[in-house]
């Protein structure tokens, strides 16, 4: 079982520095978690470290495929409000 980084990753390196298993590498477009190395921090920490420091909602998926940090959970911006703001900007 392993976590996964997806394309919304902004390459900020925060997760690389805190991974206890050295499981995160620089991919071509964004950082990646080496599945065979990821332990989900089991035995090291109560909480998965990459998911605890990642600043981007949705960029890290848990082993079950669900986002570790769902929309709104890190920025505090309600997803509806964000969508509305993006629409307003598009319309300009």
């Amino acid at each position: 079982m392993a976590l996964k980084i997806v394309e919304s990753c902004v390459n900020c390196w925060a997760c690389v520095d805190v991974c206890p298993s050295d499981a995160i590498t620089q991919g071509s477009a964004h950082f990646q978690i080496v599945t065979s190395k990821c332990t989900e921090c089991d035995g090291d920490y109560a909480e998965q470290q990459c998911a605890s420091i990642c600043p981007v909602e949705g960029a890290i998926l848990l082993a079950d495929g669900m986002p570790a940090n769902p929309p709104g959970s890190l920025t505090g911006i309600p997803p509806e409000r964000l969508a509305e703001a993006m629409n307003e900007i598009q319309a300009r």
Binding site: V10, C12, A14, P55, V56, L74, T75, G76
Partner: peptide, 16 residues
Amino acid sequence: APACNIQCHYCNRKYD
């Protein structure tokens, strides 16, 4: 220094 250890409400980490 790309990594950060806090989030501020005036900052967005999609900084490029």
